[in-house]
C-alpha cells in the first residue's frame, strides 16, 4: 500500500510537459496535443520584425479582391469576341442593358431532360413589342421556320421557344447593345 502511494505521488509531481527536449525535437513538436505542448509563459515574447514597406505590402494588396466589379477598359480589339456597348445604342426605340458582369443577358435553360429548351432575354428596356417583332423576324429569316415567342412586358424579358442563344446574342450585338 505504501509503495503504491509512493508511485502515485511520484507520478503526480512529474509534469511531462516540463521535459527538456533538444532543438531538433522542438521543431517537430505537436502543440495540438497536451503532452507535446509547452507551458505558456506570458513573459515569453516571440521576437519579430515589423515591416511597413510599401513594396512588400503591394503583394498583400493585390491579393485582396476588388469590392466592385470593375468597368471594362476601352481597347482596340477584344480577342474573346466580347464587345462593349456602343454609346448611341441608348437612343434607339429599345435597349438591352448588360448584366452586372458586362455580358449580354441572353440565357438558355434546358429542362425535361433536354426536351424543353428556352432562350430568355432579360433587361429589355423601351419598346419591348417592337423588339420582339424585330428579333422574331431576324431569327426566322435565318432558321426558315416559325419561332414561338413570349413577351413579358412587366418583367422586361422575352422567352423564345427553342435554343436561339447564338441568334439572340448576335441580334443584340449587331444593334450595338
Amino acid at each position: 500500500m505504501i509503495s503504491f502511494r509512493r508511485t502515485l505521488s511520484s507520478l503526480c509531481s512529474k509534469d511531462k510537459r516540463l521535459w527538456d527536449v533538444s532543438s531538433s525535437e522542438k521543431i517537430g513538436r505537436q502543440y495540438s496535443s497536451f503532452i507535446g505542448s509547452k507551458l505558456y509563459n506570458p513573459d515569453d515574447k516571440v521576437d519579430f520584425d515589423v515591416s511597413k514597406d510599401p513594396k512588400e505590402w503591394k503583394y498583400v494588396s493585390r491579393l485582396l479582391p476588388a469590392k466592385f466589379i470593375p468597368d471594362p477598359v476601352v481597347k482596340d480589339n477584344f480577342p474573346s469576341g466580347w464587345k462593349p456597348q456602343s454609346v448611341d445604342a441608348v437612343s434607339g426605340p429599345y435597349y438591352v442593358r448588360r448584366s452586372r458582369n458586362h455580358m449580354v443577358p441572353v440565357y438558355l435553360t434546358i429542362g425535361q431532360r433536354g426536351i424543353k429548351k428556352r432562350t430568355t432575354i432579360r433587361h429589355i428596356l423601351g419598346d419591348i413589342w417592337l423588339f420582339s417583332t424585330d428579333l422574331k423576324k431576324y431569327i426566322e429569316d435565318q432558321v426558315k421556320h416559325d419561332v414561338g415567342i413570349k413577351v413579358d412586358e412587366v418583367g422586361c424579358r422575352i422567352v423564345l421557344r427553342g435554343d436561339y442563344l447564338h441568334y439572340a446574342q448576335q441580334f443584340i450585338l449587331e444593334k450595338g447593345m
Partner: peptide, 23 residues
Amino acid sequence: YGLEPGWIVNLVEKEIYKPKDQE
C-alpha cells in the same frame, strides 16, 4: 507571390510581422 511562409499579415495596421526566433 512575394510573401514568405512564417510571416503574419495585419490588414488593420497594414503591417507584416516576420519572425526572428531561430527555431
